[in-house]
């Protein structure tokens, strides 16, 4: 009976350890060069699309993220799928009614690229409330592959995060939290139109430094102070520090907007628990004094 008391919330998929040999400068340089080939065009809403407007991308992105979360997909699947979606929309004028099919197809492909057990066509069709059939998903798959020239090995911000973390003077446990936060910011960026033009390395660097600030790690090491970190990461990605700072600020303001929206939603749905939680917001000041 005892074994049944074990925590069952661990990953069921067996995975290899990260290969430390791949976290070197040669790989990083190759990735920085390669990412250019997978950038969508920044202004496809104006130049290519006639029916699709930015808010529709937001709707389909939110839906895709929800599906990925519910299916417990690998973190990379969602940003990769969004990259496919943007690249497709950069070259192909698409009807509004086909946007969800496109989103499902991109998740289908990204999942096949990144996951041990990929999402099935049937499952994805259920998530569209059966408005598409598996056969149509497979047909769309060929259309998408053709437009992407069968090149699905896009570089994603996730590929860079590991490199950046390996360069920072942080304890392993803190790294785990930092990674999670940075990955959340990456997903957040993928849902927002403003970040389409930014290369993955920039998004990753901005997310990591936003996470470092958010977690208030700057006291851990002087290298992690806002300015030093931005300087350092901008050198790593060979970019202008001001650009990176702007990207980080954009991420932070997006985070704030999203939190506010979440808050508004919460106010409308759980008004009664709000008082209790406002109370709690004073707690950390006391808790900080607790010696652990």
């Amino acid at each position: 009976m005892e074994h049944q008391l074990l925590c069952c919330e661990v990953e069921t998929i067996k995975r290899a350890y990260q290969d430390a040999n791949l976290l070197n400068d040669r790989v990083l340089q190759t990735m920085l060069k390669a990412e250019e080939n997978y950038l969508p065009s920044a202004n496809y809403f104006k130049c290519v699309q006639k029916e699709i407007v930015p808010y529709m991308r937001k709707i389909v992105a939110t839906w895709m993220l929800e599906v990925c979360e519910e299916q417990k997909c690998e973190e990379e699947v969602f940003p990769l799928a969004m990259n496919y979606l943007d690249r497709f929309l950069s070259v192909e004028p698409t009807k509004k009614t086909r946007l969800q099919l496109l989103g499902a197809t991109c998740m289908f492909l990204a999942s096949k690229m990144k996951e041990t057990i990929p999402l099935t066509a049937e499952k994805l069709c259920i998530y569209t409330d059966n408005s598409i059939r598996p056969g149509e998903l497979l047909q769309m798959e060929l259309l998408v592959l053709n437009k992407l020239k069968w090149d699905l090995a896009s570089v994603t911000p996730h590929d860079f995060i590991e490199h950046f973390l390996s360069k920072l003077p942080i304890h392993q446990d803190t790294k785990q939290i930092l990674r999670k936060h940075a990955q959340t910011f990456v997903a957040l960026c993928a849902t927002d139109v403003k970040f389409i033009a930014n290369p993955p390395s920039m998004i990753a660097a901005g997310s990591v430094s936003a996470a470092v600030q958010g977690l208030h790690l700057k006291n851990v090491d002087h290298m992690l102070s806002s300015q030093n970190l931005t300087e350092f990461l901008s050198q790593v990605i060979k970019s202008d520090p001001d650009c990176l700072r702007a990207c980080q600020e954009q991420i932070e303001s997006l985070l704030e907007t999203s939190l506010r929206q979440a808050q508004q939603h919460n106010i409308s749905s759980e008004t009664k628990t709000l008082d209790e939680e406002v109370d709690l917001s004073c707690t950390p000041t006391d808790v900080r004094d607790v010696n652990i």
Binding site: W63, K95, Q100, E136
Partner: peptide, 12 residues
Amino acid sequence: KVCRNLFGPVDR
């Protein structure tokens, strides 16, 4: 609900 149709029927 996550299962939802966003933009109407597809042009089959």
